[in-house]
Amino acid sequence: MMKKQTIQQEHVFEQQLINISLCVNGQEQTIEVEATKRLVDILREDLQLTGTKISCEIGRCGACSVMMDKKLVNACLIRAYQVNGKEIMTIEALSQNGLHPIQNAFLEEGGFQCGYCTPGMVMAVKALLDEHPAPDEEQILQALSGNLCRCTGYSGIIRSILKMK
């Protein structure tokens, strides 16, 4: 029995462009983008901020974690139409005035290996410490539950956080 690979109907879609203003790491940006372009692509491609990584694209790994209006979010789940007027903070902002204490702790305690989950992980730790400056066990485990790391087995990451206490 022969099977043809079905072909999607060819219809030309005119991409809807929108103007958005957003503040990224303290800088005002006004850009024209497709309404459904993902924040992670805007950051990595339009703004060349490749510190924010991409790994699962469905909110399941945390590699793309950034702060939006001071709250941790997955940049792969957010689209241009949702970010107008928002304030975005990415990993690049953290070391604008020298290494952030979280970054130092990660360096000293082995909080990373390949480093690919690290920007997202550091942002998640930042969100944790912003809310709970001296987090307890439960708070640490909750705060990092959406960030996967395949290299460290998390123990180095937990050591890093405990070190900052």
Partner: peptide, 21 residues
């Protein structure tokens, strides 16, 4: 000592080969 690639990794400055454009 701090590993040689450490600072670039924790700051997000390291360009992985999939980051190149």
């Amino acid at each position: 000592r701090i590993r040689p690639d450490g600072i670039e990794k924790v700051t997000g400055k390291l360009s992985y080969l999939t980051d190149l454009q």
